[in-house]
Write a protein that binds this DNA or RNA. Structure first.
Lengths: 211, 211
DNA sequence: ATATTAAGTGGAGGGCGTCTCCGGAAATAA
DNA sequence: TTATTTCCGGAGACGCCCTCCACTTAATAT
């Protein structure tokens, strides 16, 4: 499992180092002000990458992304040393909305209904972002990419929802709740109409978790 | 649907001796006996590819497969014009065992138990064939590969099982049963220990389908 | 305004993959 | 054996990943 050295994407199976991405001006006092062109290029790359992943899935060509963004391939790699880093950066913003929605649903809905509602939102979300769905089922990206894409509050969001529902005594769940998302994303590889299937699956899952 | 259409060479996708499906024998009596070395190479390729997919997933290098099989890359492409064609050929035999198991379970177990038992078998199967699990969630291969890998009786097998369970009035299911497999395969992208998760998921699914 | 300097740029290049093409080898039929 | 047909196999064109480093340029110091 770990020894897969023949992988053509050298960095894919490595976990990303801690967060080079968030700018977070935590007073690193000594240094000079960051260059303006660097940040500009970073944003251009993110924009282009988002579009590319959206329409070609997570294995879109990085060279092409750089070309379309009008920067050299070296610049892309400087900003995002691995494909995972780029994917993570792209979807970080995106998935934050899901996390926010979770907080809102918790305040306005009873436990199980909130959970169900959020899962439905998750399906909608996968629907609007083809690349996103692919990331979840990705083989190329594997676990690393999955975790990366999730590290924006999604695990916490669903954990919050399921914990509350469990605490209310209405459901029981003896597995990592993120696997519910994996299961849902699993049907996203089906053809058109998968969203209906996904929604039915949600109801099955919730019914199956009820005590 | 459009994916596998690269079949410009006739008859390439013919399968081995006891395959009643494709052979179809439409009186091409005019031609000579197929060459022995061709069939030999085809089998060597299948063997090697099975091993390669098993340990490196469905994106294993075709060049390496050809090299290990001791044939030229051209020969590989002659027999299997696309990666999907090779994957399909490899897993056709494999999945037939699952279909057989379904028939057996139907005769020896009550409806729901048979279904559950078969799903557990499916998990075991994914476990022994890493490549197999990857195929289900594959992006590279996409839908085409998925369908290809499934076209060996797996859809029929699970349809049989679920139909029987539904007919018995014990469960209800308003979706393509193959999506149950997709959901299960979805958690296979998780890290080590995913098999336990998958088994718990099965129980949740079955509980959720109960009327 | 000019010099200084370190961060940032971009593309050439090596390695590996996919896929096509076709001259030549090999097996079958006569 | 010879003729005919099928099949082999690797060279070659091209794409992608990723590294490396000579050069550029924005931010500072003078």
């Amino acid at each position: 499992m770990e020894g897969v050295s023949g992988n053509k994407y050298g960095g894919i199976l490595r976990f990303s180092r801690d967060d080079p991405i968030i700018v977070a001006e935590t007073g690193d006092s000594s240094s000079r002000k960051p260059r303006a062109d660097a940040e500009r290029n970073r944003l251009r790359l993110l924009d282009t990458a988002k579009a590319a992943f959206g329409e070609k899935g997570p294995s879109a060509s990085l060279e092409e992304i750089a070309r379309e963004a009008g920067v050299g391939i070296g610049t892309l790699y400087r900003h995002f040393p691995t494909r995972d880093a780029l994917i993570e950066a792209v979807y970080r913003n995106e998935t934050m909305q899901l996390a926010d929605a979770a907080a809102r649903l918790i305040e306005t809905h009873p436990p199980v209904k909130a959970l169900r509602q959020w899962l439905l939102l998750f399906v909608d979300y996968l629907g609007t972002k083809y690349g996103m769905a692919a990331v979840f089922g990705s083989v190329t990206g594997g676990t690393a990419a999955l975790y990366a894409a999730c590290n924006s509050g999604t695990p916490e969001a669903i954990a919050l929802l399921t914990d509350r529902a469990v605490a209310s005594g209405e459901i029981k769940l003896d597995m990592d709740p993120i696997d519910l998302l994996r299961a849902i994303a699993g049907v996203a590889s089906a053809g058109p109409g998968w969203q209906d299937t996904a929604r039915r699956l949600i109801d099955i899952l919730i019914a199956g978790m009820r005590v």
